[in-house]
């Protein structure tokens, strides 16, 4: 799925990374707990979260993720925007709640992935 499709499906605003909207992604995950993302996520390219602090972007960067979606109308901090720009991560903000946002993407073909054993 193209990141631009995620933006469309979640009726999201682009915060930064517009130049990378054409990139394709194949899986996603949703979590407010960065510890769990670092522990269990493998090869997911999109992170949906309601958490707002700079470690969200750092976690995404460590996991080689290319898109972060802030759910529940959360707005990023200036530091988050700066870090996302530096690492080329597309940052989106959506009014959808976490459960709905994940469900919409899943039913449109953006699946999760196997848990790391």
């Amino acid at each position: 799925m193209k990141i631009s499709m995620i933006k469309e499906l979640l009726e999201a605003d682009i915060v930064c990374g517009e130049e990378n909207l054409g990139n394709h992604v194949y899986s996603a995950c949703g979590s407010d707990m960065m510890s769990d993302v670092l522990a269990f996520v493998k090869d997911q390219a999109v992170l949906l979260t309601g958490l707002v602090n700079s470690q969200v972007i750092r976690t995404a960067e460590m996991m080689d993720m290319v898109c972060v979606v802030l759910v529940r109308s959360k707005l990023p901090t200036p530091e988050m925007i700066e870090l996302a720009k530096e690492s080329g991560i597309v940052l989106l903000s959506s009014k959808k709640r976490m459960y709905d946002a994940c469900g919409i993407l899943y039913t449109n073909g953006l699946v999760g992935n196997k848990l790391r054993s």
């Binding site: 407010d32 510890s35 670092l38 522990a39 602090n53 470690q55 976690t59 790391r116």
Partner: peptide, 15 residues
């Protein structure tokens, strides 16, 4: 509340 402290850090480092 910042998304850390779930008791996964050290086990994750080992993993």
């Amino acid at each position: 509340s910042l998304g850390f402290g779930a008791g996964m850090g050290l086990p994750n480092m080992k993993r």
